[in-house]
Amino acid sequence: MSAAALEVEGVSVDLGGRRIVDDVAFSVPAGSVVALVGPNGAGKSTLLRGMAGALPAPGGRVVLDGVDLTALGRRERARRVALVEQDARSEFSLSVRQAVELGRTPHRSLWGFEGPGDPDAVSQAMKRAEADEFEGRSVGALSGGEQQRVHLARALAQEPQLLMLDEPTNHLDVRAQLRTLSLLRDLAATGTTVLAALHDLNLAAAYCDHVVVLAGGRVAAAGEVAAVLVPEVIEETYGVVADVLTHPRTGRPLIAFSPRP
């Protein structure tokens, strides 16, 4: 295994006076696509928001390429980390391009002037997220799936070293889900570390290198896909019977679920 690009060290996050994420620790190598999985209420969204600085994390550190993100200011952290939330707030009055341009904010001067590389970065981000076909339309006029692509484009425009996504396939049809996850793999191939909370274990098995399983706000298992997505871990975490098969086309794990007898 190569040196860890992302090290999460004992991170805890409180929400509404209650500890939701408790002493989470894991590490992954550079250029990995990492699935964050677990049942509803496990703390996946809270952990991502705490790592991004959107929620206070009273304990632990998040270290990216040797830099402690928790010690950085919001602007400097935003130059390194982008978060796409599941129900991201939409700028309904903005055009798609204007919304994606907001991703360049951390890279601009304190006066907010556009840099020479900003237009190209925005155009490339929209193209990669397949949001360029409706760049002149209002964000508020788009479907949920189209808005999801705009939020992804805005995150790509930040040019982050760490891209975190909360249910990035939400609102997307099957074709769009597969294309989005293929894009995440392409980003990882260029050195971006990707951490995505996923509801669908088969998508995690098909596209991710590593899996972190959360249960009750703690890490239940973490490691490479084949070592973590095994019947024992799935049954213990989700309370279902799981048969892990081999996909006939890709050779990746394929999971079939049954209720407990």
Rank of each mutant, 00 (worst) to 15 (best):
M1D: 12
M1E: 14
S2F: 01
A4Y: 04
A4R: 06
L6M: 10
L6C: 06
V11Y: 00
L15V: 11
G16E: 03
G17D: 07
R18P: 00
I20P: 02
D23M: 05
V24K: 00
V24P: 02
S27V: 11
S27E: 15
V28G: 06
V34R: 00
N40S: 13
G43R: 08
T46M: 04
T46A: 09
M51E: 01
M51A: 12
G53F: 06
L55F: 10
G60V: 12
G60F: 06
V62M: 01
V63W: 06
D65I: 01
D68N: 11
G73M: 08
R74L: 14
R77E: 02
R77K: 15
R80L: 10
L83Y: 03
E85C: 13
D87I: 02
A88N: 10
S90C: 09
S90P: 02
E91S: 10
F92N: 08
S95T: 15
A99Y: 02
L102D: 01
G103I: 04
T105I: 13
L110V: 12
W111P: 01
G112Q: 13
E114S: 14
G115V: 13
G115F: 12
G117D: 15
D120N: 03
V122D: 01
S123V: 12
K127S: 12
A129Q: 07
E130L: 13
F134A: 07
S138V: 03
A141K: 10
A141D: 15
G144V: 06
Q147T: 04
Q147S: 07
Q148M: 03
R149M: 05
R149V: 02
R149C: 03
V150A: 06
A153W: 02
A155I: 04
Q158Y: 11
E159P: 02
P160S: 12
Q161C: 04
M164D: 01
N170V: 08
R175A: 14
A176D: 12
Q177A: 15
A188Y: 02
A189W: 05
T190H: 09
T192I: 15
T193C: 11
A196S: 15
A196W: 06
A196L: 10
A197Y: 01
L198F: 06
N202Q: 03
A206C: 03
Y207M: 05
D209L: 08
V211P: 01
L214W: 03
R218V: 04
V219G: 08
A222H: 11
E224L: 04
V228C: 09
E232I: 05
V233G: 06
V241R: 13
A242D: 00
D243V: 13
L245R: 03
H247I: 07
P248V: 08
P248G: 08
R252I: 04
L254I: 02
L254W: 14
I255N: 08
I255F: 05
F257P: 03
S258G: 07
